[in-house]
Simulated scan of single mutants.
Amino acid sequence: MTITKPVNNVRPRPTLSAGIPSSAIVVAVLAGAFFVLPFIALLAGITWSDLPELLTSRSALDALWLSLRTASAATAICIVFGVPLALVLARSNFPGRTLMRSVVLVPLVIPPVVAGIVLTEAFGRRGLIGEQLSALGIDIAFTTAAVVLAQTFVSLPFMVTTLESHLASSGEHYERVALSLGSSKWRTFWTVTLPLLRPGLVSGVVLTFARALGEFGATITFAGSLQGTTRTMPLEIYLAREADPDAAVALSLVLILIAVLVIAVAYFRPKHPHR
């Protein structure tokens, strides 16, 4: 009687150098060092004994709390507007779609200061829309609303591009099946499209929040720098850099830790053991 050993279906993990030239590994190490070394230098430059006092100052707490509130509000707005916009760009074909996509991506490539100037020309007190709103007693520039608007303007492209690429890769098969079975477009959107979109939406939300949290140029141009009103964490770091470099380094550490955390959440994928 012959006993057959069970076949092991678990594939061996590839080694680091499998299929990768040695020269590419060396260059990759240098590239990684280019990114890692500045953060090591930042940690080395911190006076750790002074860190609690620097991080609990009134201005630092005001800036951190304002950044978290405005970035959360901007992210919520990006969800409301970004999901339909990405859906239209990915699943429809209309005249000017390429131009529309290009306009949506413009904030990704222009300097943030230019974005702030664009917003000022549109929503400033003498702007195209802002002047009309000002006549009604509604002022946006140099208010907390201006911070949210600036963060939304520079963050929305991240949401749209993430969702659009996810929609393009998922295809329309399941939606077409649902529609052929008599489901309405609205019900198909809620029961089929959104569940399929969930991984992309999670990544888009986290990346959008991270971008909004780190926004500087458009904010200071369009909203100014008023403590407790428009001075977000990046602005507080910029001002502290001139008056108190140690405080600027400490605040930078906080912002970096938050950014690393949200990016780690965006790219975290749980490993499922082989059964």
Rank of each mutant, 00 (worst) to 15 (best):
I3Y: 07
K5Y: 09
P6T: 12
N9H: 13
N9Y: 15
G19I: 09
A24F: 06
A24K: 05
V26G: 04
G32M: 05
A33T: 12
P38M: 05
L43I: 12
A44D: 11
I46R: 06
S49E: 14
D50M: 09
L55C: 04
R58T: 15
D62R: 01
L68A: 14
R69C: 10
A71D: 14
A71N: 12
S72D: 03
A76C: 13
I77N: 03
S92T: 15
R97D: 11
V103Y: 07
V106T: 15
V109R: 01
V113D: 09
I117E: 00
V118D: 02
G127W: 08
I129F: 08
Q132K: 09
A135P: 05
D139H: 06
F142E: 14
F142L: 14
Q151Y: 07
T162S: 02
L163T: 10
E164D: 01
E164F: 03
S170V: 15
G171I: 12
H173R: 13
R176G: 09
A178S: 11
G182T: 13
S184R: 05
K185I: 12
R187G: 00
T188E: 03
W190T: 08
T191F: 13
V192R: 01
V192C: 04
T193C: 03
L197K: 01
R198K: 04
P199R: 06
P199S: 13
V202S: 01
R211K: 09
A212Y: 10
G214Y: 01
E215S: 00
F216L: 07
I220T: 06
I220G: 02
G224Y: 06
M233K: 04
P234S: 07
P234V: 10
L235Y: 06
I237F: 02
E242V: 13
D244M: 08
P245F: 12
D246P: 09
V249Q: 04
A250N: 01
A250T: 08
L257Y: 12
I258A: 00
A264Y: 13
F268M: 12
F268W: 14
H272V: 15
H274G: 05
R275V: 12
